[in-house]
Amino acid sequence: MIRRNFSPLVLAVSIGLAIALLGAIFAIIWSSLPQGETQLMPTPILTVIPAPTATLTPSVSPISLTPSATSTLMVGGTGNEIQVGVYVQITGTGGDGLRLRAGPGTENEPIFLGREAEVFLVKDGPKEGSGYTWFFLEAPYDTTRSGWAVANYLQVIASNEP
């Protein structure tokens, strides 16, 4: 009689205890994890070399990007028309990138997403479609990375590129 009255309570208490115990075990594991990692992988020495200093660090050799004396050198000034043969970069997408499509119009399938600041060679255009002006772009190092893009998010970069 008494046992029957107590068993739900006992059950509830034991479940509660089990949950609390599990929680405690997890808490211990969580708190010990970062420390274990720290010992295995010490935080690396982080150095940021600021840009304004005129001297180039000799230990670091430039790879695929040509360093320029001033950052504005590569970006073309005003009056640079987008036309076949020039290099353009995707700009003003706020990091979202720009869809390159199978044809000059928004009804055409997007092929891939061009990235903000990505550089392309203009191969065709301009063509009108869906109320926009379109250019056919091709990546300099990968001709399969090509498609039609709206001119609104393209900016001409200096013609000696790359």
Binding site: T47, I49, A51, T57, S61, I63
Partner: peptide
């Protein structure tokens, strides 16, 4: 990594 260096000049 043992060391990480961001060279803003060389952009590497």
């Amino acid at each position: 990594p043992k060391s990480i260096t961001a060279d803003k000049n060389a952009r590497v």
